[in-house]
Nucleic acid binder design. Structure first.
Length: 114
DNA sequence: TAGCTGACGAAAA
DNA sequence: TTTTTCGCCAGCT
């Protein structure tokens, strides 16, 4: 059986990202931590990059780095698109950084802890 | 084939 | 305190 777990590490990432509530944001590290691969935070970001291979829409704009910076905004097709999407959800973004990020931070390990 | 890059993060200096 | 280095490991050249 291949089922090596669900190894679809990428798939798991997409699922978690989709679970992010409207108006909330999370971080690559938080997702990685939730998946148990905390050291592989990069892979989370890489998964996002591959997300466009995934036919389902992944709200990657809700995922930012630990600093609350929109590091991946350039990957949305347009550098301001990510900010636009966040602001559209009521998230205030200034200088590519999410305001009150700490308050808007949604940690799967805390909310989905299990 | 082997090596480099990369949407990060944490630890060490 | 800030800056630098290392580790993660899949994908790409």
């Amino acid at each position: 059986m291949k089922t090596k777990n669900h190894d679809d590490f990428f798939y798991m990432v997409y699922e978690v990202v989709r679970l992010v509530p409207f108006g909330r944001v999370t971080t690559y590290g938080a997702i990685a931590n939730y998946l148990g691969v905390k050291g592989s935070s990069r892979m989370v970001g890489w998964a996002m990059n591959s997300s466009h291979s995934h036919h389902s829409p992944v709200p990657a704009h809700r995922v930012v780095n630990r600093q609350g910076l929109l590091t991946g905004k350039h990957h949305f097709g347009h550098p301001t698109l990510m900010q636009e999407l966040l602001e559209n959800e009521g998230v205030v973004v200034q200088n590519d950084q999410i305001v009150h990020f700490k308050k808007l931070f949604w940690d799967p390990s805390e909310e989905l802890k299990l």
